[in-house]
Amino acid sequence: MGKKTNIQLMVDGRRIDGRLPEQLREIEMKIGEIENADGSARVRFGNTEALVAVYGPRSLFPKFLQESDMAILRVVYSMAPFSVDERKNPAPDRRSIEISKVTKDALSGAVFLEEFPRTVIDVYEYIIQADGSTRVTAINAASLALASAGIPMKDLVAACSVGKIGDVLIVDLCGKEDNYSESDMAVAMMPSKGLITLLQMDGRLTKEEVLQLLKKAEENCKKIYEMQKKALLEKFKVVGED
């Protein structure tokens, strides 16, 4: 984030991986690859790939953790040791703990937790390969996994990253852009409601620039939302009988 570098992030209107400023990477969404899970999904944005499994609602012990009138949602975000350039220690680091926490907030707002008092819904996110924007990729997968587990929600949650290189706004940051762009922002939202459930930004932006980036994020969350819906409908299409 905003580290000094000699790397040219933008050359002749093209980004370091050849994309146009507002171009998303190749996106793949697969549902139901973890047989044991109540719901699961794998989402890939270019070379960033997240596998997410949902277990629950299930009973929660020890009992003092239970909420008598609602379920609790727990999120664990973790990265495979081999997902990054230099091997990552598999123990949770501060970054992962923070991401787990903000992701929990981002998803809890969309789930009807009050329907399952005293239980827990566990969301486990595992990054298989990381090339920027891992938290938002994982949120996209988590939302699919929750829906495919039959968990009631107000809307799917779609997420993307946006940022700024020089005067140019970019979407779906890759690893180098994540590290070296001047400003970046992670956004998750319930697209059909226009409600933002996750927002993290750092850099140095004017208020107007923040709002411009938010609008870009909203536009792209809507695109991703359409892909999520398509992936779910394809997986669960039912041929009528009788």
Binding site: D38, G39, G56, P57, R58, F112, A147, S148, A149, G150, I151, P152, M153, K154, L232, F236, V238
Partner: peptide, 21 residues
Amino acid sequence: KVLGILKISEEEISVIPLAGK
């Protein structure tokens, strides 16, 4: 609220879930 199959009648709008506990 859920992934499911829609059932609309004069008395009720209902979704029969396709997954869940």
